[in-house]
């Protein structure tokens, strides 16, 4: 997993609530047996017409907006546990998702792929949307070590929560499986004691 320390970027705004993982990556794209290429189909049904041409009114097809931070309405990533949703977001090039609320399984999946979900207040989220609406070149800075997110237009800043273990994983590019593998003896002891 790639390390994540600090990032300043322009953002892609998606002010829709309850964006479910079926929208992030529709089920018909889940037939692959590897993790590659999902970024091409991120938000496929919102992004492309039936003939595969881009839908002009969708934000990913609007040249005004770019960057490695996706900012979305509340309850992002609800529904299916498909990790393909995290692979699609990572594959497209997003490193951070900002919302006022995330669904649980998606949040875990994102973290397991080095994509940082940042929970902000409803007010802070509304301010980001307003700033980006006024100027598409508005930027945010996310500092994981200090757990802060800063709106570089208004100068307003918030701290965000992340558990110490996951923070350590992201800062050092470590993943859970190595950690669990190092606990094999404890697992066998647990089994023996049952």
């Amino acid at each position: 997993m790639e390390k994540f320390i600090k990032l300043t970027s322009t953002v892609v705004p998606l002010p829709i609530e309850n964006v479910d993982t079926d929208q992030i990556i529709p089920a018909r794209f889940l037939k692959a047996t590897d993790k590659n290429g999902f970024g091409d189909n991120l938000f496929a049904d919102w992004r492309y017409n039936k003939d595969g041409s881009p839908k002009a009114d969708f934000v990913l097809n609007n040249a005004l907006y770019s960057g490695s931070i996706l900012v979305a309405g509340k309850n992002f990533g609800s529904g299916s546990s498909r990790e393909h949703a995290a692979w699609a977001i990572d594959g497209y090039g997003f490193k951070v998702i900002v919302s006022s609320f995330f669904a649980d399984i998606f949040q875990n999946n994102a973290l397991n792929n080095g994509v940082l979900p940042v929970v902000v207040s409803v007010e802070f989220l509304a301010e980001i949307f307003a700033c980006v609406n006024a100027d598409a070149k508005s930027t945010l800075t996310i500092d994981l070590q200090n757990q802060t997110i800063t709106n570089n237009v208004s100068g307003n800043s918030e701290t965000f929560a992340i558990n110490a273990y996951k923070k350590e994983c992201l800062l050092n590019g470590l993943d859970d499986i190595d950690y669990l593998l190092s606990k094999k003896a404890q697992i066998e002891a647990y089994e023996a004691a049952r």
Binding site: S81, R82, E83, I105, N108, D176, L181, K183
Partner: peptide, 30 residues
Amino acid sequence: DSHTSTHGAFGAIAFGIGTSEVEMVLATQC
């Protein structure tokens, strides 16, 4: 699969996980 919650009907802690976690369970049962 997110609908793993179904098995909770028996008085079990049952929940959906992502593929990274599937790998963890296959490798360590945890």
